[in-house]
Design a protein around this nucleic acid. Structure first.
Lengths: 163, 163
DNA sequence: CGCCATCGTTAGTCGCACTAACGGTGGCGG
DNA sequence: CCGCCACCGTTAGTGCGACTAACGATGGCG
């Protein structure tokens, strides 16, 4: 029995209490969950200081890059459910970052348009996110960050294709 | 205005509806969240078929690798909050996978021990998880999987050290 | 004209991370 | 010895994100 193994004992409150089983550390799913929890917290707190949430960014970016769209289209583009989109757009409209107008050609739809103020906000959020991501990826070299993003994207694409 | 920019139109319901802004695809935090959502769903559904949850695995693995422990110690080792640990241990005890006994040396504590049945279950869950992770990491070569895990772990360690 | 799909909206579910507060117990310093 | 503080397990509740169900209103199509 090695010293490490001997250190398990339930009567050793602090000794090995924080040790994490290898079985867990080897599981990609767990590392992913854990990292995402921390990443989300980092981003949410950072954006909160700019009176924003990550959904705001997703919607503004989508509007900026692809132009005005209905709420349903925005849902598909951002991955936000249309049920939740309602609230997000309320928040954005309150802040005058987007405008919500009925589509004259189809009365079921609203056409969402980004405002000048929305564009400014988007530019600012981009900067904020740059800083936050620099913190998130701090331990990685530029090459490693690229590598990480590439692997991440390949995995995500694979699991997204059937949907 | 480029053709790409011209293609935005709100009146093009399906054309570019599913296109995802580059701004979003470049953000590690977003790719992480998205992938984790899918990963979690995959693992949860897989474990559900074995009448288990990922928390079960974490607790059983911790007990197997480090021996009996108090609930507080298990909390620290698995990352499960002690508030939630109660329910997890109830589920595990119901299934006779662990035993919960008061610590004679300290009446505040329970000593949790893995049972023979628990050990069997752990072995089975390990196999189930192997299969699920193979599906999760399907698009990556063995070398790339190692690389991915290494990058993931370095990031997580960096964001875990202060806590 | 009748049927079905789509749109925005409301409400509600589920899992997970996390906080607050409790009664009970233990350890330690004065 | 005793008073205070830290720790333990437990209960309850919060907040958020993903997701479902159902609605009334509208549109498209056979």
């Amino acid at each position: 029995m090695t010293r490490a193994e001997a250190a398990h004992a339930a009567d050793r409150p602090d000794d090995g209490a924080r040790r994490i089983p290898d079985r867990l550390r080897r599981r990609a799913s767990r590392q992913l969950s854990q990292l995402t929890t921390r990443s989300d917290r980092l981003i949410n707190e950072g954006l909160a200081q700019a009176d924003a949430r990550k959904w705001h960014y997703a919607v503004l970016a989508s509007l900026q890059d692809f132009g005005p769209a209905s709420q349903a289209t925005l849902s598909k583009r951002t991955g936000i459910y249309r049920s939740d989109m309602v609230g997000v757009l309320n928040e954005l409209a309150e802040r005058h970052l987007v405008e919500r107008a009925p589509d004259p050609a189809d009365q079921r739809r609203n056409i969402i348009t980004i405002s000048a103020q929305g564009r400014r906000r988007l530019r600012r959020l981009d900067k904020v996110l740059d800083v936050l991501h620099d913190e998130l990826l701090a331990p990685l070299s530029p090459a490693e960050r690229d590598q990480f993003m590439q692997l991440l994207t390949r995995l995500l694409d694979h699991h997204t294709q059937n949907s």
